[in-house]
Design a protein around this nucleic acid. Sequence first.
DNA 1: CGCGAGCGAGAACGATCGTTCTCACTTCAG
DNA 2: CTGAAGTGAGAACGATCGTTCTCGCTCGCG
Lengths: 187, 187
Amino acid sequence: MEHEDPRTRILDAAEELFYGQGIQAVGMDAVRTASGMTMRRLYQHFPSKNDLVEAYLLRRDGRWRNSLAAHVSGVGGPPRDQLLAVFDWLGLWFAEPGFRGCAFVNSFGELGATTPVVAAVARHHKEEFSGFLAGLTEAAGAPPATAAHLTLLAEGAITTAAVHGDPTAAADAKEAARLLLDTALAS
Amino acid sequence: MEHEDPRTRILDAAEELFYGQGIQAVGMDAVRTASGMTMRRLYQHFPSKNDLVEAYLLRRDGRWRNSLAAHVSGVGGPPRDQLLAVFDWLGLWFAEPGFRGCAFVNSFGELGATTPVVAAVARHHKEEFSGFLAGLTEAAGAPPATAAHLTLLAEGAITTAAVHGDPTAAADAKEAARLLLDTALAS
DNA sequence: CGCGAGCGAGAACGATCGTTCTCACTTCAG
DNA sequence: CTGAAGTGAGAACGATCGTTCTCGCTCGCG
């Protein structure tokens, strides 16, 4: 596995460190050690820490949303069930070892005020996520307001699971989502 | 106003800087300048930056929850209305200039993994908040699960409002809360 | 073989951080 | 008056950060 392409090795190491400890708490030297790189090669692939941070966030955004979409389309069934499956997927995520909340919320809180690209990636990530839920909600025949409600539940579950270290927030959010969805579909 | 007690002046300056820019992005020298203190006096009141960070979070926690409780009890009415008033208060908060999300979520993401006291204060803040909602929910005659649902909505609204810079998340959350609450009370 | 280009390993650099120290000056008890 | 104690203002210190440079060494091409 250590023969993977260098960019991937660097990003793997950076992601684990940045996500697990916060971005500012991790120095480039720690990334170098964890990736088994030399400084020269590290800076050849990412000319500055900002570039590495941006690449970390962009890659994680893509992988996160792809994983969610794969899980949801994998369960199949009507759009209503797929929407609820989003919260099952969140529950799996929360239970992963090292789960520490949303990387984009964390990086936004830490660097959003001083590093515009971090704020932009975080905003983009959240817009894509709520857009994904909006698509499923529309397919289920529920009004757009319901999509906003489900987005809030999901975001709240992520935050709550992170701070409390307790994955049950996903089940709570799923139950609330089911109530809201069935109420919306009954009208 | 510059004759206030030094502790308050320091905490006021620290809060504005820490909340607005992130904790690690603010040096002690910036706190010293903003508070109009000398280094010696700054360290006399807070022997280390960690102490200042902890005091900042604790003071903000108390003020935040007192303000919420005052607003909610000020509107009066039945518990159901007070519960919904929580989301009005959130909307007012979101619209304040410089709003940048929950200080505790932000500090948790930035320092929670490396500074246990930060994680503990964030967890305490969230527990107190959900406990507050649980009390109102019980008074309204709704089951405990509803309190968890409303907590998730509020947390999600805070995150969404912060990342999007859009206070309308409070109104969305309030509508969802009303639906969930009325569903729970109808049974 | 000879040599220039690229590499790994890590030292070095300048900036910045949290924290402490210096020093001239004021204050006030005796 | 005298001197001990405390102050303001900011320099200084040691650590750490992001980034770059040095220095042997290797390797491929003439």
